[in-house]
Design a protein around this nucleic acid. Structure first.
Length: 204
DNA sequence: AGTGCGATTGACT
DNA sequence: GTCAATCGCACTA
């Protein structure tokens, strides 16, 4: 039996996702986010992620389960979407076993399919700026709280797909924009990739 | 019921 | 480089 495919993409099975949050953050680099909307198909390759661990003061799950973060406490491979600074939505992938609160923030994409629609969604033309940064990424793909809880291992409005490209040079750095636990090396990115966010010093 | 604060972004000096 | 916008949420009382 072969895995389900759509639009030329093969959906990632939950068994393909590492349970461990750091392993998942690394594994997601190079995978593809697929967004299906009434305006058509949008997709992009993940070039930057951050892990938010159990016992991590910077994690939304740190103070226990609430109505907002409940997805982080479910099984791995589901979308946790929240609004940051009252301005930007953030896309996360839940990790670890059910009952354990942790996840991976998807911080940047290399746009692949539906670039014209992403330009409209963002109000910006520049390819490099369409999904460089978590808030921009969510805006480009028209992601908001309606997609909170979406199963990313099932073909639908939002899912994860394999990518043909392998052997990416992955760098590690501190996470961006934190006031707590800011020293931990939990950010993963494709080295010297122009679609990665953050200061130059952290990207090579 | 009131308060303080961000896993950011875009505009501006 | 600096800084304000903006609002849902968690915490205090």
């Amino acid at each position: 039996m072969s895995a389900a495919t759509a639009h030329g993409y093969e959906v990632l099975a939950r068994a393909d996702l590492p349970v461990d949050t750091v392993d998942l953050a690394r594994t997601l680099i190079g995978k593809v986010v697929v967004r299906e909307t009434s305006d058509g198909l949008l997709s992009g390759r993940i070039v930057e992620t951050e892990a938010y661990l159990v016992g991590d003061a910077a994690s939304h799950a740190y103070r226990g389960e609430t109505a907002r973060n409940r997805v982080l406490f479910g099984d791995r491979g589901y979308a946790y979407v929240y609004l940051a600074y009252g301005v930007s939505y953030m896309l996360n992938v839940s990790s670890e076993a059910a009952g354990v609160g942790a996840g991976v923030l998807v911080r940047a994409l290399e746009p692949l399919v539906g670039i014209a629609t992403m330009q409209l969604n963002r109000g910006v033309e520049t390819l490099r700026d369409l999904a460089r940064g978590p808030g921009r990424l969510a805006a480009a793909l028209d992601i908001d709280r309606r997609l909170d809880g979406a199963d990313l291992c099932r073909i639908g409005p939002l899912w994860l797909a394999r990518d043909l490209h392998d052997a990416l040079d992955i760098g590690i750095s501190t996470r961006i924009g934190l006031t707590k636990a800011a020293d931990r090396l939990l950010r993963f990115y494709v080295r010297d990739n122009r679609f990665v966010s953050g200061p130059k010093a952290l990207n090579s």
